[in-house]
Design a protein around this nucleic acid. Structure first.
Lengths: 204, 204
DNA sequence: TCCATAACTTACGATCCGCTACATAAATGG
DNA sequence: CCATTTATGTAGCGGATCGTAAGTTATGGA
């Protein structure tokens, strides 16, 4: 017999909802950034005391890492979906930029990319956790480009990273979705032009 | 008779060089960002004690503001020079982006733009001081574009801000000058294309 | 020589930071 | 019933933060 999911745990039941607390913390981190959110801010927002916080989440950095997982599964840009399509490369990359514009401006109270902005914090642990997600995304984009244009993949990958960091920054600076989208499309012109020239060169 | 510059001040002479101290502080702020530099870091790097620091500079935020002035005069992108030229608009804007790439990667120990990165800090006072410089730069670029293309000035201005923020972020992420320059030029394609289409539309 | 001035050194206050020791409350298992 | 387990609240630790009060030292001016 396996233990069923309905079997209660032993000790005193937790008096707050874990997922709800994580969501609250995510909102805080996204709105203010890792460094600017103190444990006191978190415990107050969740409505618990420090010992409950540390018992449930380990530490501020641990909680942040858990939130990054949550974000990658729910709020982040779905790179596999956008990149695995059998559309032209430039179209896919522009779609990524447009999706970035959409998501970065989705919540006015938590603008920008949680991961990109998180990687800018001073805390070594949190920076490393966010950096791992960034690296993963960068590699996904790099491989996607390199499959067809290995020579230019690095350069275009740099461009994508830079534009996305810029979009996240501009979102935090108050640019709304329309402005971000216009910027993303303007940035896409460089991509389309590059791959158009590539095709010309090949067909010659 | 006016008092000459050689006239010494009354009390005990300062035992450290003011300009040198400001330069040291600028290096620290540029390398780590406003929030991550403590007064203790500054006093230790300069070689003085806190009271001397506060007597000389007022506060951390005051010193930062003074450093922004210094940076605007020495280290920042010379927008008037680059924009007042009677070259095509796109060429000027690309020159700004290329100059940004050059300066943001100039010092590996202090990558990115002191002003752009400073505007991202948590301290209200420092954020406001840096924000004023950013606004001034943005307005200069906006006016430059609007003089000939008023309809598209806002959009292109957004694009410029976003790319420059991205370049600064990528510089902090370790991109060297060559990589930043390639990114800046790729970003310039969107500008050239836009203004090329504009001319086509006019000549029709 | 003595005073006014200004920068110096030492030491500390007040507050916030992440985090925890300790006793207590609320549940399950025997 | 009691033991075990887990969460909770109170209260506080050690350290870092920005900033300052108090007393000392070094200069110029009268």
């Amino acid at each position: 017999m396996e233990q069923t999911e309905s079997r209660r745990t032993r000790g005193r039941p937790r008096q707050f909802d874990l997922d709800e607390a994580v969501a609250t913390a995510q909102r805080l981190f996204h709105a203010r950034g890792y460094d600017a959110v103190s444990v006191a801010d978190l415990t107050q927002a969740i409505g618990i005391n420090p010992p409950s916080f540390y018992a449930a989440f380990g530490s501020k950095a641990d909680l942040y890492s858990r939130i990054l997982d949550r974000y990658a599964a729910q709020g982040a840009i779905p790179l596999p979906d956008l990149l695995s399509a059998d559309r032209p490369i430039a179209e896919c990359l522009v779609a990524v930029l447009e999706e970035a514009a959409r998501r970065y401006a989705a919540d006015p109270g938590a603008a920008g990319c949680l991961v990109i902005e998180g990687a800018r914090c001073a805390d070594r642990e949190a920076k490393g956790a966010a950096g791992a997600f960034i690296t993963a995304g960068e590699e996904a984009i790099y491989r996607f480009i390199a499959a067809r244009y290995p020579d230019q993949a690095a350069c275009i990958q740099d461009y994508m990273s830079t534009v996305m960091a810029g979009l996240s920054a501009s979102a935090r600076n108050g640019h709304n979705f329309d402005r971000l989208l216009a910027t993303a499309r303007l940035a896409g012109v460089g991509l389309e032009q590059t791959f158009a020239l590539n095709r010309q060169g090949r067909e010659k």
